[in-house]
Amino acid sequence: MDWADYDAVLFDLDGVVTPTAEVHMRAWSQMFNDFLADPAAPGGGDRSPYTDADYFAHVDGKPRYDGVRDFLASRGITLPEGSDGDAGDAATVRGLANLKNEDFNRVLERDGVEAFPGSVLLLDHLRELDLPLAVVSSSRNAPAVIEAAGLADRFRAVVSGAVAEDRGLPGKPAPDTFVHAAELVGAPVARTVVLEDAVSGVEAGAAGGFGLVIGVDRGAGREALTRAGASLVVSDLAELVPAEVRR
């Protein structure tokens, strides 16, 4: 591809720049399966174990409160919404989401995070081209992850889940967070690239009318990303760097 055709690049974070999607997946699995296996847990519904298929179908790429709501709805489980300050032992949508967040932060603090080598290679190449870059993540933890990965100086803007909530922006698959990021870096959406590994994120890029939506297949599947609106699907961001630069 010719990067000269575009004015800015917007990156999802977890699974695109850093392998933290795996940490999120483990944290979601632990939280949901503990809840589903608890005989005293309220809400009724289907209590069969939560699987990776549930993650990709209902949780991946979405704000965490939305992910909890959508998964519970898929199982016919009804819980009260609760409040932002609910502790992890509260049987509410927000309590479960907060418990998952606590697990994620413990793993991040203990293990740190390193960016995918191919993603760093693309970031290096785009810096040479002087293209403005931004991160658009549903996670409220995005700034901490970027800092832990040593990439804070690479992005002109970070639109995290916290920013979206503060500004009243709906999360992916709505395009609003991507559109806001394009505005922050001063680029028209028609000349902006979106890089996403989640079906909901690809749907957001496609809905926003962005110049190019690239799916990064870290498990969602090439066909699913293409159906969601990706014009191009790669397995690693190094594929987007010219061969002569990769040598």
Rank of each mutant, 00 (worst) to 15 (best):
V163M: 05
G61P: 01
L72A: 09
E128D: 15
L129D: 06
F210G: 00
V158T: 12
H180A: 05
G61E: 05
V59H: 04
P132S: 09
G211M: 05
L13Q: 00
G118C: 04
G221N: 13
A224C: 05
E244N: 09
E22K: 14
N105S: 11
V59M: 11
A198L: 08
S48P: 07
D130V: 06
D46S: 12
V136S: 03
F35S: 01
R154S: 13
R246N: 00
L121S: 06
A134W: 04
G208I: 07
S137M: 12
A174S: 09
A243T: 04
R191E: 03
V9W: 04
A27D: 02
V135H: 00
D176F: 08
A157N: 13
A91G: 11
V193F: 07
E223R: 06
A181Q: 10
E147P: 08
G219R: 01
V213M: 14
A181N: 11
G43R: 08
D176M: 06
V189A: 08
D166R: 09
F116T: 07
S235E: 15
A115D: 02
R247Q: 03
L237N: 01
D84C: 04
L122R: 08
V194P: 01
G208P: 09
E165R: 11
A21T: 12
G45P: 01
V185S: 06
V193D: 02
K100L: 13
F155P: 02
G88H: 10
V23L: 15
F35K: 01
S48H: 10
A243Y: 07
M31Q: 15
S231G: 10
G211V: 05
L72W: 04
L126Q: 04
R75C: 14
R26D: 14
V107S: 10
R218P: 05
E196I: 07
A228F: 00
V199M: 11
A228P: 01
A27V: 03
F11H: 02
D52F: 15
E22D: 15
L10G: 02
A134P: 01
H24Q: 13
R227F: 03
Y65V: 15
N98T: 12
H125G: 07
L108Y: 08
A243W: 08
T92A: 11
F56D: 03
A187M: 03
H180S: 06
A152M: 14
S119G: 14
V189W: 10
V163N: 00
L240F: 07
A148M: 05
V135Q: 03
